[in-house]
């Protein structure tokens, strides 16, 4: 039992000592925990490296497998898409791949921008890349870049490559409505109404005021406003040589150059 003034002081001191002891134990425990986690993570990463080395070919050649591997890396805090300098680049050699893909995608966007106003279907990019790949593969050169093109490119790959470009500047984004995905290469927001109009016109690549009224059930003003917006964003062209005015969307449909 403690009593008296002196005991109060002693008590305080004992309390202090007790607290210090607890803190000490707590921090060493934290330290241990931290260390053990670190160790685990290191082990995990080592295994990842081994795994990556062992299945390198599979990663490079199969898009599905590549996607899963990528998810795995992300989950343990490793970004396999780092550029040239990283340790991961050497192990996986993926940074180069995505970087080159990103370059090709931006080239395609720039080349088609005049026609489609900066909005291009993801599938269209894939189609162009696939055609390009076939062409390049038939030319037998020893350049490393040509060899890389043998890899099959999936939609996921395209999306990941676009994510890389996004780091460099905000104008590239992945836009989707319904289950259709687009790459937008110009800044600017597509409003919900605009997206709806595009969505509804996906099938034919064009629409009319009447069609929109029938499928969206909007007021005439709302329809005209949305169409006006799309025209001004250069995503739509008018065609007055039919029975009524047609609105065409180059990003949805455009004749192929063959």
């Amino acid at each position: 039992m403690l009593r008296g003034k002196a005991l109060g002081l002693a008590g305080l001191r004992r309390e202090q000592e007790a607290r210090q002891a607890i803190d000490f134990i707590a921090s060493s425990f934290r330290k241990e925990l931290y260390e053990s986690l670190q160790k685990q993570l290191d082990v995990f990463r080592e295994n990842l490296v081994l795994f990556a080395r062992k299945y390198r070919k599979k990663i490079e050649n199969e898009p599905e497998f590549r996607a899963q591997f990528h998810r795995l890396c992300i989950s343990i805090g490793v970004d396999p898409l780092v550029s040239k300098k990283g340790f991961w680049e050497e192990v996986l050699g993926m940074g180069d791949f995505y970087y080159e893909l990103a370059v090709k995608i931006s080239e395609i966007c720039i080349a088609t921008r005049d026609i489609n106003g900066g909005l291009i279907l993801l599938d269209e990019i894939k189609r162009l890349l696939d055609n390009h790949n076939d062409e390049k593969f038939t030319k037998r050169t020893s350049k490393r870049i040509i060899l890389r093109n043998r890899y099959e490119i999936s939609r996921d790959d395209i999306e990941r490559a676009v994510q890389r470009i996004q780091v460099l500047g905000k104008s590239y984004s992945i836009v989707s409505f319904g289950n259709i995905r687009y790459i937008q290469s110009v800044p600017g927001e597509l409003s919900h109404d605009h997206s709806c109009v595009l969505s509804v016109s996906k099938e034919q690549g064009f629409t009319t005021e009447r069609k929109l009224a029938a499928s969206l059930k909007w007021s005439k003003e709302r329809i005209l406003l949305a169409l006006k917006g799309l025209l001004e964003m250069e995503l739509a062209w008018i065609d007055d040589q039919d029975l009524e005015r047609l609105y065409w969307f180059p990003s949805l449909y455009y004749p192929i150059d063959d």
């Binding site: 025209l231 250069e234 062209w237 008018i238 065609d239």
Partner: peptide
């Protein structure tokens, strides 16, 4: 002929200035 020759709206003079310039 280039692709735009087969694209119907190419034959209508576009009202939006930027688009008309391209056309």
């Amino acid at each position: 002929y280039p692709p735009f020759y087969s694209y119907p709206p190419s034959f209508t003079l576009q009202p939006v200035k930027a688009t008309r310039e391209k056309q």
